[in-house]
Structures are given as structure tokens and as C-alpha cells.
Amino acid sequence: MSNTENSIDMTRPLPDVQPWSRPFWEAAKNGELLVQHCMDCAANIFYPRKYCPECWSGNLDWIKSSGKAVVYSFSTAYDMVEPRFWEDLPYTIAFVDLPEGVRMMTRIVECDPEDISIGMEVKVTWRKLNDDFFLPYFRPVKS
């Protein structure tokens, strides 16, 4: 197995950024969660696009999200993920709904996976990958 393992990529994957999504990742470095916004039709857009998917306007800007969200669904992984994610097991992937009307994929952290439920209120917390990239994870809002 050692020969095979040597050729498996164990490095952490970084987001494959498009030019128009750079402001999102720049803001993430400062702990700000941005949602793309169309200045012509007022649509909030996730994930960011080159042109508004609703009206094809190129007049796009960003709004700052509150960072609050609600868990739409989740799945906790115990096995059969890529070797590069093994050290994180078990971990929980979730879809979370932001009050800005968009849904993101994320991880739920800082809690026991057993305590995660659909409808749970969560808040953004940042996970540093390197100096350029911080991923928006979410943690439970402590009542």
C-alpha cells in the first residue's frame, strides 16, 4: 500500500477561484462573509457568478452577511472520504440557509456531531487554510 499512498495527494485542496469571486475570498481574510448582489434586479446570488443568473446584468456588487444561518440538512462523515480529509474524520458537511436568501455548503464545527439537527441556528466561524484562504465554517449559536 505504501507505493500507492505515496502517489495520493495529501495536500489540502484550495478553492478553485474565478476572477469574479476574488472579493469573496479577500473579505474572508478579514472575517467578513459576503453575498453577491445584483444592482439591477436586487437578486442575492450564491455562488458568485460573472453575470447575474437572474437578469444577466454585469452590474454586480456585494453585501455583508450577518453570518447567521440555519441548518437545512447535514451529513456526518465517518469513512470513505479522500485521504487528504482523513485527519478531520468524523466531520459534518451541511447546507445552511442564510437570511439573505442563499444556501451554502459548509462544515458544522465546535460541537458533537450527535447534537447537530436540521433547523439548528448557526453562526459563521473561519477556518484558515493558508494566508490566502479562510473557509466559512459554521458553529452552533449558544443559547
Binding site: F46, Y47, I118
Partner: peptide
């Protein structure tokens, strides 16, 4: 590769997300 993969998702996890919501 930008909005899903870096979080560590897989096909199995995608199906898990769908199923958990449906069961809920």
C-alpha cells in the same frame, strides 16, 4: 471545486444531505 470540494464533500455525502432532509 470552489464552493463544495474544499469542505471535504463526496458523492456519498451529497446523498446523505438529500436523505437526511427527506427523512426529516
Amino acid at each position: 471545486l470552489q464552493w463544495e470540494y474544499p469542505f471535504g464533500t463526496t458523492y456519498n455525502i451529497v446523498m446523505g444531505l438529500m436523505a437526511n432532509r427527506f427523512m426529516h
